[in-house]
Amino acid sequence: MTFLILIIALAAMLFFTTSRSRKQQRAAAEFRESLQPGVEVMTQSGMVGVVVAVDTDRQIVRIESSDGHVTDWVMPAVKEVPAQFATPVPEDSDDTDAAEVTEQEGSGSTIGPDVIDVPDDISGLDSAQREYRDQQARKDDDTDGK
Rank of each mutant, 00 (worst) to 15 (best):
residue 55 D to M: 09
residue 27 A to S: 14
residue 42 M to L: 08
residue 26 R to N: 07
residue 132 Y to K: 07
residue 32 R to A: 04
residue 2 T to E: 15
residue 71 T to L: 10
residue 107 S to A: 06
residue 117 D to M: 07
residue 72 D to L: 08
residue 145 G to W: 14
residue 100 E to G: 09
residue 102 T to F: 04
residue 132 Y to L: 10
residue 93 S to K: 07
residue 100 E to M: 00
residue 103 E to C: 06
residue 4 L to P: 05
residue 76 P to H: 06
residue 116 I to Q: 13
residue 83 A to V: 11
residue 80 E to D: 10
residue 8 I to A: 15
residue 36 Q to H: 09
residue 78 V to T: 03
residue 84 Q to H: 14
residue 6 L to S: 13
residue 95 D to Y: 01
residue 141 D to T: 00
residue 81 V to I: 09
residue 109 S to G: 04
residue 42 M to Y: 04
residue 135 Q to E: 13
residue 97 D to A: 11
residue 90 P to I: 00
residue 139 K to P: 01
residue 17 T to G: 14
residue 17 T to R: 13
residue 56 T to H: 10
residue 46 G to V: 01
residue 35 L to H: 03
residue 83 A to E: 15
residue 125 L to A: 04
residue 82 P to D: 02
residue 95 D to Q: 05
residue 111 I to Y: 15
residue 11 A to F: 08
residue 89 V to W: 02
residue 130 R to L: 08
residue 79 K to M: 10
residue 80 E to R: 14
residue 115 V to Q: 15
residue 8 I to R: 11
residue 139 K to Y: 05
residue 111 I to N: 09
residue 101 V to N: 04
residue 120 D to C: 03
residue 86 A to S: 13
residue 30 E to F: 07
residue 18 T to S: 06
residue 26 R to V: 04
residue 49 G to I: 00
residue 7 I to P: 08
residue 80 E to I: 05
residue 8 I to D: 15
residue 89 V to E: 15
residue 78 V to W: 01
residue 135 Q to G: 07
residue 79 K to I: 03
residue 5 I to E: 14
residue 89 V to M: 15
residue 123 S to D: 09
residue 55 D to A: 08
residue 138 R to F: 03
residue 4 L to H: 11
residue 38 G to A: 09
residue 19 S to M: 14
residue 60 I to N: 00
residue 97 D to C: 05
residue 68 G to M: 07
residue 75 M to T: 04
residue 28 A to P: 02
residue 136 Q to K: 06
residue 80 E to N: 06
residue 19 S to A: 14
residue 112 G to E: 00
residue 48 V to L: 05
residue 77 A to F: 11
residue 64 E to D: 05
residue 48 V to W: 02
residue 5 I to V: 09
residue 82 P to T: 02
residue 18 T to D: 11
residue 124 G to Q: 11
residue 146 K to G: 08
residue 35 L to T: 03
residue 2 T to A: 11
